[in-house]
């Protein structure tokens, strides 16, 4: 059952990777604006509309 030690080491390492990913996201300001992107994604690609406004 020595494999347990390796598996636990792996799982903790993986968890640490995610923790680092969170830090990276936080440092690069990805949590600064949590609202605007939710609106932005709903805008149409308007190239087609331009021909027939309203």
């Amino acid at each position: 059952m020595e494999i347990m030690y390796i598996l636990i080491g792996c799982s903790v390492f993986l968890a640490l990777v995610f923790l680092c990913a969170f830090f990276w996201a936080n440092e690069t300001g990805q949590h600064n604006d949590t609202y605007t992107p939710s609106v932005r994604i709903l805008f149409d690609d308007d190239r087609a509309d331009e021909a027939n406004p309203e």
């Binding site: 640490l16 969170f22 936080n26 440092e27 690069t28 600064n32």
Partner: peptide, 18 residues
């Protein structure tokens, strides 16, 4: 930039808690 150390502390505490 969002450098609030509290957020980092919460992240670490949450990580350790889990």
């Amino acid at each position: 930039r969002n450098l609030n150390p509290l957020v980092a502390k919460i992240a670490v505490a949450g990580f350790c808690f889990g």
